[in-house]
């Protein structure tokens, strides 16, 4: 006896699905830059497929966000605007997003791989029985029009192509920073569509009691970065001096984030962000493959490490084997002078 009649394994008629959707993540009116990065990349995919590019925003008071999405190339913006969505919670977001997906049947859904995106994506993909690929770093379309979602596997030595052939939508969370956002062209042609809000506060199963958002630095946009690793041994000061002198943002390897020395929003690598600065100075970073993977788009890489055998030296353009506590301030001094010769410090 077969259960096939009852349970069709979630396979759908893929012809019924079209359009490329991009989730526009906003908190308190501020859009995460990964959303605009995705919108740009998705425009390329939509053109290739002959599909419409649709931006989707969930939150409260989204008029400006919707307008900007049109200016940045969306053919349509779907908006679910209601106080129940602010601040973000997984259950109302997931349910609303899922209802929109089931009603409008997009072929591709791209979500930024932020904590928020990674949190609720499954609440859409599971009930929709969609294919969901995590932490994607490259997107393409194959000859049959299938989304090719590429993600690093085995710690980053291998790039795996994930396909979703018989289920829809083809969903993916994309690592922040891997694509570059273009400037809006100011042309806001397109339609803003108000979606029915299907969620009510009474149905919510979670409640945000406190929220403190402070460090919203976006390292993916930084032109210069000083990144610290386990080797700094909790002492951020020398690296910070160097960062100040170079006018650089501080970033970190996973090890330094796990130790609590640097905030997680500044993590570079497989489970963090991809950066592409003109200068990347790795301070006390050994050079694990998971980290390299997030920084190998940097133009010039400089390594400072006291271990001559650290793998980072093979992945750097310029390096020095030195004690960090001495080397960083010494370097900083050179650039303090060079950058602001006339300024009297202290």
């Amino acid at each position: 006896m077969s259960d096939d009649d009852e349970f069709e394994n979630g396979v759908v008629d893929v012809e019924e699905y079209d359009d490329v959707w991009v989730f526009v993540e906003e908190h308190d009116g501020e859009v995460m830059s990964v959303s605009w990065e995705l919108l740009d990349e998705a425009e390329r995919l939509a053109d290739e497929l002959g599909d419409d590019l649709v931006a989707l925003a969930i939150g409260e008071d989204l008029d400006d966000v919707a307008e900007e999405a049109l200016e940045r190339g969306a053919d349509r913006v779907l908006v679910a605007d209601d106080p129940v969505f602010e601040p973000y919670r997984a259950d109302p977001y997931g349910e609303q997003f899922r209802a929109m997906v089931e009603k409008r049947k997009p072929s591709i859904v791209l979500i930024g791989g932020t904590h928020t995106g990674r949190d609720f994506a499954g609440r859409v993909a599971v009930p929709a029985h969609a294919g969901l690929t995590a932490d994607v770093t490259e997107l393409g379309v194959d000859d049959d029009g299938l989304l090719e979602a590429r993600r690093p596997a085995f710690g980053g030595d291998v790039l795996a192509t994930i396909l979703c052939e018989e289920h829809r939508p083809q969903m993916a969370t994309i690592r922040p920073g891997v694509f570059e956002a273009a400037e809006p062209d100011g042309d806001a042609d397109g339609e803003i569509v108000e979606a029915d809000v299907v969620v009510e506060e009474d149905d919510a199963i979670s409640e945000v009691l406190e929220r403190e958002v402070g460090d919203t630095a976006d390292i993916t946009e930084a032109e210069r970065i000083v990144a610290v690793g386990h080797g700094i041994d909790g002492d951020l000061e020398p690296a910070r001096k160097l960062a100040d002198a170079l006018d650089a943002e501080i970033a970190a390897s996973r090890a330094a984030v796990d130790e609590g020395w640097v905030d997680g929003a500044r993590q570079v690598g497989q489970t963090g962000k991809t950066v592409r600065p003109e200068l990347y100075v790795a301070v006390g970073i050994s050079g694990a493959v998971q980290h390299l993977e997030g920084m190998n788009k940097s133009e010039t890489v400089v390594a400072i490490n006291n271990d001559p055998n650290a793998p980072i030296f093979e992945h750097a353009d310029h390096g020095i084997v030195a004690d960090l506590v001495d080397a960083c301030p010494e370097l900083a001094e050179r650039f303090d002078e060079a950058a602001e010769p006339q300024e009297v410090v202290q």
Partner: peptide, 25 residues
């Protein structure tokens, strides 16, 4: 019932770097 499948694997070529190590700051 798994919606996703692996379509292929490719080894990632390491980015070429100069690899110069100097002695002086």
């Amino acid at each position: 019932v798994s919606p996703t499948s692996v379509g292929g694997m490719e080894t990632v070529d390491p980015v070429e770097r100069k690899g110069e190590v100097v002695d002086e700051i």
